[in-house]
């Protein structure tokens, strides 16, 4: 009987934590997604909408004295005049570029005629071309497929280099004590301490001299510099957590060091290795600063996004570009998550 209130209590706390986490993560993302679907006109409306809209409630008014037409859009409980024109194609262009509404000249002419024959403002519904921002993004971002592959290549190489070099160092750091082992592990950290912003300048000059300019591999080399150290430290801390006795026991039973490593140690450290590969992937995938200096004709996707929509004064297209960039890395994270998750509680000691 006494368990009940306690259980109810812990359940409530549990649900509260769940709700807080979900909302702090998801809420900003929802608003962000909505902006990526917003037209220029909608992008800065207040209060901001949490979900994207599909159409506008609007009115079309004929101004007899000037023979012009005024478009009014619903804002709160009133309508706000946004565009007055006499010209059909001007109206159509405005709808396309500012409202993401595709109306042919004929359709506009029809609306104009109807409005002319109505005494008061004509209520109309303007349907949004929902994916307009994304379509525009792909029109602007020439060679996005190429850029996608460049990004994948750069990320793949970064992961390979960091995992192999970093993982080996991590294992050695955790398992062996040699003369310079402390010096080594600290100097790995020093690599991360030097701000990359300043280092990239001389490094780029050097890489150019090696004739690697404008290749994905050169990017991976730069990305791997801090990531090797990161991987080494993460994996070594995990290897340290795996008891040496376990490895020794296996070796007593005749397993070679390599076999022990592959069958006992490696599986136990797998989540950490996976986690490190996620860092390496994201570092390579999301970078546009290094790519800006080191590539020109073969941009990565992140650089392409930055180049095409980065300088927009309205955030809707940059948001759409960022979503395009985000999708592959979310897929990767999702796959990775399964591997981290797979070993949960299944570690047999």
């Amino acid at each position: 009987m006494s368990m009940r209130p306690g259980k109810l209590w812990s359940r409530t706390v549990f649900l509260l934590i769940l709700a807080t986490i979900a909302s702090t993560v998801i809420l900003p993302i929802l608003y962000f997604l909505t902006i990526s679907f917003a037209s220029n006109y909608e992008a800065y409306q207040f209060p901001a909408k949490i979900f994207p809209t599909f159409s506008y409630s609007a009115q079309l008014r004929y101004n007899a004295e000037k023979d012009s037409y005024t478009l009014l859009l619903k804002k709160g409980s009133t309508y706000e005049a946004v565009k007055t024109t006499q010209d059909v194609s001007d109206f159509s262009l405005y709808c396309k570029s500012q409202l993401n509404v595709l109306l042919s000249s004929a359709a506009v002419q029809e609306l104009f005629n109807k409005a002319k024959n109505t005494d008061h403002a004509l209520p109309i519904k303007l349907k949004k071309d929902f994916f307009r921002n994304y379509i525009v993004f792909f029109i602007l971002a020439e060679g996005s497929m190429c850029a996608l592959f460049n990004s994948l290549k750069a990320a793949g190489w970064t992961i390979l280099i960091s995992l192999i070099l970093g993982g080996v160092s991590g294992y050695i750091m955790a398992r062996y004590k040699f003369k310079f082992s402390n010096t080594f592990s600290t100097s790995l950290l020093v690599v991360r301490m030097f701000p990359a912003v300043a280092l990239s300048l001389p490094l780029v000059v050097y890489i150019m001299k090696m004739n690697l300019y404008d290749t994905s591999f050169a990017l991976a080399i730069v990305y791997a510099v801090p990531n090797i150290a990161l991987t080494a430290w993460i994996t070594s801390s995990i290897f340290k957590g795996i008891s040496v006795e376990l490895e020794e026991a296996a070796m007593v039973f005749g397993a070679t060091r390599l076999k022990t490593l592959m069958t006992i140690t490696f599986p136990l450290a797998f989540p950490a290795i996976i986690a490190s590969s996620l860092y390496a992937f994201l570092a390579a995938w999301n970078d546009s600063i290094t790519a800006l200096i080191m590539t020109n004709n073969n941009p990565t996707l992140a650089l392409l996004v930055y180049r095409t929509v980065g300088s927009s004064t309205i955030p809707n297209l940059p948001a759409a570009g960022a979503v395009v960039l985000l999708v592959p890395s979310l897929i990767f994270t999702f796959i990775i998550k399964n591997y981290i998750n797979q070993l949960w509680g299944k570690v047999a000691l």
Partner: peptide, 10 residues
């Protein structure tokens, strides 16, 4: 994990 995947510009 989602916020981690966000590019800095986003």
């Amino acid at each position: 994990l989602i916020p981690m995947a966000f590019p800095p510009a986003a």
